[in-house]
């Protein structure tokens, strides 16, 4: 499912610590267009939990998370 999604923008936040990746995603989502799909690469343990929760709370669409080699690729769609 994740493989078929076309990502508009990818943010590489690997090596950044909590709350860095989450805050970076908030910044990018704000400036993105509705319909944009953002992928964020993150290697910290907090983001993996924080980002999906934030996406739900912010009423955006959580597409999914892939766990890759030592990091996660979290995909979010801006819907509002």
């Amino acid at each position: 499912m994740i493989g078929n999604v076309e990502v508009t923008r990818e943010i590489d936040a690997r090596g950044s610590f909590c709350p860095g990746p989450m805050m970076e995603l908030i910044r990018v989502i704000r400036s993105a267009q509705i319909g944009d799909v953002i992928a964020i690469l993150s290697s910290d343990q907090g983001s993996k939990r924080d980002i999906p929760k934030w996406v739900t709370k912010a009423n955006q669409e959580f597409i999914g998370v892939e766990t890759l080699d030592g990091y996660d690729r979290i995909i979010v769609k801006k819907v509002r």
Binding site: G15, S16, F17, P19, G20, M23, I26, R27, R30
Partner: peptide
């Protein structure tokens, strides 16, 4: 060593957002 953002940069970013 881990190049952690400083507490101050973290605060500036939070205030900006």
């Amino acid at each position: 060593e881990k190049k952690v953002s400083s507490w101050y940069d973290t605060l500036l970013q939070a205030k900006e957002l």
